[in-house]
Design a protein around this nucleic acid. Structure first.
Lengths: 276, 276
DNA sequence: ATGCCTTACGTTATACGTAATTATT
DNA sequence: AATAATTACGTATAACGTAAGGCAT
């Protein structure tokens, strides 16, 4: 049975005449006439009362319209269910707490050829945990462990803060620095610092020249002699060599550990993302 | 979307290969291949894992099979609902307690051109009442009133018992008879007397020659001089004139009143059958 | 006269089958 | 060799649109 004919029957019920219905259906009247006749034949039921110049629904016809509406809803639900399932099956929905994590994540998965596409969202820690628990996200990456009985949380990677200086800079030869070494100096700073924001906020004795735009910031760095921050992640992410020396900070807070968390029943996802 | 393709998908899931599925579907393999590809396109979803010589369902494919089964059940239910409704709308289901009632009923409705077809069942009084209450039958005709709060029971017609005798018979000139007049005489009797059986059983002083077959009984009547029973209904029903004189019995039990009963909420049916 | 339904007929599009191709067991 | 899926191509079925006819308001 052709479900389109049911839609056409419904259109007739809504429009009142075959002509108008045919118009809204972008179909010729003769076609609609024929289709309704074949629908009657297929159902083996009289749907219409045909007078010379007037066609109307029988009681059976009216009932059929009602039932057809239900059936078409079921068809629509089927359609949506299948597509939703397919989307769920072919994409991994993940959440991250900082933009840099996306770099690291895609780097690690680049040679793995995941069967799913990755869809990442940048959210606050609390939103991430909520989304994970509600199963809207299948995994999240955060800078704190998630303490929940249903959640499996394990260390994923570490991000180490560096000071990036031109080779001529006085700090360029040092093995390592402490944040205290930044007192009374001027630095270039990209805004949107993500997880490093609190650390920067604590550096009250340092002057920052802030630039939001990514490309403008890159230009500033190559043109200026002022130090800037970098991390192991940003160093990997950079394509062009920046000619700078990167010196790690030895302070504990200059090292952030990122945790990968999944629901315990989805342990397979964790394995998939971490093994190899 | 073509529901047949869903059936074909299900057939594939059941058979395991496109070839076998095509065979059970009475379809060529190439057609099935193409159909499954267009189904994928229409759904916008990957249903199959295609290897060189092997095709199998993806997880999405398996899920789609499950959902398709549901949808096809809904389609089947739709189909059956429509047909059941149509049957109910286009046929009046009635019950009668005696074969003669069918004659009378159809006689009365002959010139009315009912929109419904009549479907009659011959049942015992008790079965009739039960069928009416359970709404399996929409009306019943019985020889007793139905005493039930939900039921509307009204007189429909009367059947009067006659003695049918040849013109030369001694009773032929009488205006009326009593059952006592049948003592010590011999009569022709058709079996299957229906509601008149108890009355006949009470006539212990009368001899009966019983004939079951209808046509044979008619022949007997025209050939023999023996009296037989008739009623106003059988007189109407007979096409050929039987050349007999019909004399009514004056006894109270020789008159039966038939009642037409419907559920009170179906009063319209009673009106339909009795008016005009 | 205009609107509505139907019939008739030619055309297009969709679905199918046969045959051939390739790959796997 | 045999089985399985795909590709290619010609054919048949069905759905559609245009045109014409009939009937009603």
């Amino acid at each position: 049975m052709n479900l389109q004919y049911l839609e056409q029957l419904i259109a007739f019920e809504e429009e009142g005449t075959l002509s108008k219905a045919a118009e809204t259906l972008l179909l010729s009247q003769p076609s609609l006439t024929r289709n309704m006749k074949t629908l009657e034949d297929e159902l083996g039921v009289q749907l219409f009362l045909r007078k010379k110049n007037k066609i109307s629904l029988t009681e059976t016809g009216k009932y059929t319209v009602k039932e057809a509406r239900k059936l078409l809803v079921h068809e629509q639900v089927f359609f949506e269910n299948v597509q939703r399932f397919s989307l769920q099956a072919t994409t991994l929905f993940g959440g991250i707490c900082a933009p840099g994590v996306e770099w690291e994540l895609k780097n690690r998965l680049a040679d793995k050829k995941l069967p799913q596409t990755l869809k990442l969202e940048l959210l606050s820690h609390q939103d991430l945990v909520e989304a994970l628990l509600s199963q809207r996200l299948q995994f999240i990456v955060t800078d704190q462990k998630v303490t929940d009985d249903q959640v499996l949380s394990s260390g994923f990677f570490k991000e180490q803060l560096y000071l990036a200086v031109p080779p001529a800079h006085p700090y360029a030869l040092k093995e390592e620095l402490t944040l205290a070494d930044l007192a009374n100096i001027t630095m270039l700073l990209r805004s949107d610092l993500g997880i490093w924001q609190p650390l920067v906020d604590g550096l009250t004795d340092t002057k920052f020249i802030v630039q939001k735009d990514w490309e403008a910031f890159e230009e500033l760095i190559s043109a200026s002699a002022l130090p800037s921050f970098s991390t192991n992640i940003t160093q990997q992410a950079r394509e062009t060599d920046d000619q700078r020396i990167h010196i790690p900070f030895s302070d504990a807070i200059a090292t952030k550990t990122f945790y990968l968390s999944v629901l315990k029943k989805n342990r397979a996802i964790l394995t998939q993302l971490t093994t190899n």
